[in-house]
């Protein structure tokens, strides 16, 4: 390993952390503005132009607030839980190609921190570890509402991992590779080559599973304000509470990147136009998370389980089987 590689990787990591931490903060601003627009309110508007500096104000508040650790909690676990959520979100991002490769001063930059050839597996696996944050935080809190939230996060995790894995299996069978760059190049021929046209069912299933994995509204039962206060976050304050949200919003961005790359062509042929298209697709998926929150009620935990095991899983398995048969027939047996 040469020094240039190490320096390059370090720079990439710093850039990625800076951009997406900032975006996670801005994500809260977008969310409040979009929700306000849909509920005919104004949203944040007093701090800075259009309320944009509200993010900074929130950040200052979270950073300077007293870090309260209640008496009966299991202290080490309680302290480390928010860090797990935030850290795993960014570790998962290491395998996401955010931008096609480009050349600066004759030096080709690959905007991906670690181009491992099983990228998609790594991303899904590490992103799933992020659910340990709510689980551990809830179990360590010595609070009944937090414990309910922890139980729910375990249930959501165990069931929706199955859906996201099975639904991704079908497109992966088509591409024959687990690398996100290969998946992207498979679709580089233009809009007609996008996997969404050959795998519409897998696309819908993965999209639904993405809502469960990020804990967004129709499946927001892990921290459902009107039933269990703030769930795992009830006993948290200050920046530890904030870290949960940095993790959640970063995960929303990263899963949007994954959906856009796997199903909607990613950055296409690698030109600047393709890269901007990727950002537009990601913005759409991020906006859709917020849109759903404004428009849909939360489902009950039993409805969530019913949907997962009795509806989505059989469809996902059927989809895999049908895809396999079609590939076999097309390949001329």
């Amino acid at each position: 390993m040469d020094t240039a590689f190490i320096i390059e990787t370090m720079i990439k990591i710093v850039v990625l952390l800076t951009i997406f931490s900032a975006l996670a903060g801005l994500g809260t601003y977008f969310e409040r503005k979009v929700l306000a627009f849909m509920q005919r309110r104004l949203g944040p508007m007093h701090v800075g132009p259009f309320g944009l500096l509200q993010v900074a104000a929130d950040g200052i508040k979270l950073f300077t607030k007293e870090d309260i650790i209640p008496q009966n909690v299991v202290k080490p676990i309680f302290k480390i839980a928010p860090v797990i959520t935030a850290a795993t979100a960014f570790i998962a991002a290491a395998a996401i190609p955010f931008w096609p490769e480009f050349t600066v001063f004759g030096y080709t930059v690959h905007p991906i921190v670690a181009d491992i050839n099983i990228g998609i597996l790594f991303i899904l696996g590490v992103m799933a570890v992020g659910l340990y944050g709510p689980l551990l935080g809830g179990m360590a809190s010595a609070n009944k509402f937090s414990l309910i939230s922890a139980a729910r996060s375990a249930a959501v995790f165990i069931s929706y991992e199955v859906i996201s894995g099975l639904s991704l299996l079908a497109p992966l069978m088509l591409v024959g590779s687990l690398s996100l760059i290969d998946i992207n190049n498979y679709q580089s021929g233009g809009i007609g080559n996008w996997i969404i046209w050959t795998q519409p069912v897998a696309f819908i299933l993965f999209w639904i599973a993405a809502f469960a994995e990020t804990g967004r509204t129709p499946f927001h039962l892990i921290a459902n304000d009107h039933e269990i206060i703030d769930g795992f976050g009830t006993e948290y304050s200050g920046m530890r509470w904030g870290l949960f949200f940095i993790g959640e919003y970063a995960n929303m961005f990263f899963i949007s990147f994954v959906i856009a790359i796997v199903f909607l062509g990613g950055f296409g042929d690698g030109t600047i136009a393709g890269a901007i298209q990727l950002l537009l697709k990601v913005s759409f998926f991020f906006f859709f998370f917020l849109w759903t929150r404004a428009a849909w009620p939360d489902v009950r935990p039993d409805q969530l389980m019913w949907l997962c095991w009795k509806v989505l899983m059989p469809i996902a398995v059927l989809n895999v089987v049908v895809t396999g048969v079609v590939i076999l027939v097309q390949g001329g047996l």
Binding site: L121, L124, G125, A128, L131, Y132, M139, A150, A154, I158
Partner: peptide, 19 residues
Amino acid sequence: AVQIIVYTGAVMALYAFGM
């Protein structure tokens, strides 16, 4: 990657029993 995926799920089930 499979080690991460399989064991996070398996240990998560143990947590459920622990609870």
